[in-house]
Amino acid sequence: MDRTTLPRLNTFAGLSLILDRVAEKRDEATWVNEQAASAHARYLLLDALGQTYLLPGRDALRWLDSGEREQLLGELKATFLGFAGERPHFLLALDDGDHAAELETRLSARRAGLRDVGLQLAADEAGLFAYAKGLAHWQRETRFCARCGSPVVLVASGHRAQCTNAECGRMHFPRTDAAVIVIVEHEGACLLGRQAGWPKGRYSTLAGFVEPGEALEDAVRREVAEESGVIVGDVHYHSSQPWPLPQSLMVGFTATAVSRTIRLRDHELEDARWFTPQDIVDGLADGSFLPSPPLSVSFRLLAHWLQQRAGLDLEALVARRAG
């Protein structure tokens, strides 16, 4: 694949372009507290399901200022996310479902999940939502030490958890599960598969989690072989996407198959087949083919492949079908 022209940033990616995480300051409690009390501080509020609050009638985050935070949630410990421009940004994670519903009324806001509004939000807000959601999930899931079973407490402004057992004291860091996702091609066609529970006609690039002691390229070859029986040769990095649903990092690749022989080897895929660009055009036109949602890197991998191989715009083709 020609990598001289890469696609636009994947959804939730590019956060470093607008956010300085200032990781070196997380242990400085006095400094963090000063930023939290600043009139410039902004707070992103998440409920126990990882949903956030949006402005009424708009696809935009309902940020709290420091005054609202103090009035409504002064007892709730905040997690420092970083600086965007000159404004410190924080996360407030709720555990109380009733409280979350009450706040929806008091803030004149509505709640929505990342999967629902990830494409509707501005890119910087979508990235911040994804960052906060992934961190909040880890905080909720990390309550006890994996070594000795004692309770842990959050330190470093919510970015580490420390065992409270003085004889252990182990530090725990936010977990991210690496997964590979790949568009495999062979002589003008790409390999796509579908799971039984997906909407009718939906096909996606193949994906799977990386195993211990495994290079990313080796994970691509193993996953493709396990799911479809297709043997992959060359593998090249394409792009990545944070996927905090709940805690993954999707690492995208392009790959070339040795042959088109498909042998479904497990029960993960209901079907796998090779698609030419014309097959995809025809399938979108008659409704027999449905790509992954545009939110995902899978959609971007297919879009880039179609553009490079046939000069086709996948978004335009999908929009034409929807219209």
Rank of each mutant, 00 (worst) to 15 (best):
D2V: 04
A13H: 09
L15G: 07
S16P: 01
A29V: 14
V32G: 10
A37D: 12
Y43G: 06
L44Y: 08
L45G: 03
G50D: 05
Q51N: 09
R58V: 02
W63L: 06
W63N: 04
L64E: 07
R69G: 06
Q71W: 02
K77H: 05
A78R: 01
T79R: 15
F80R: 03
G82I: 00
G85K: 01
R87A: 12
P88R: 08
P88F: 07
H89I: 00
D95L: 07
D95W: 00
D96K: 11
G97F: 03
H99F: 07
E104H: 12
T105Y: 05
D116H: 13
V117Q: 13
A122C: 01
A130W: 06
Y131Q: 03
L135H: 07
A136W: 04
C145Q: 10
G149C: 13
S150P: 01
P151I: 05
P151D: 12
V152L: 09
L154S: 11
L154N: 09
V155T: 14
V155C: 09
R160P: 00
R160I: 00
C163T: 10
C163K: 02
A166T: 15
G169L: 11
F173Y: 15
R175C: 00
I181F: 11
V182M: 09
I183E: 11
E185P: 02
R194Y: 07
W198P: 09
P199E: 09
K200W: 08
K200V: 12
F209L: 13
E211Q: 10
R222Q: 02
V224D: 13
V232D: 15
G233P: 04
H236S: 14
Y237D: 08
P242W: 13
L245F: 05
L249D: 06
F253R: 07
F253C: 03
V258G: 12
V258S: 15
R260D: 05
R260Q: 11
E268N: 14
L269T: 03
W274N: 06
Q278E: 07
D282P: 00
G283C: 09
F289A: 00
L290G: 05
S292M: 12
P294M: 08
P294N: 12
L295D: 11
A303Y: 08
H304C: 01
H304I: 00
H304R: 09
A316R: 15
A316K: 14
A319Q: 14
R321Q: 14
A322C: 01
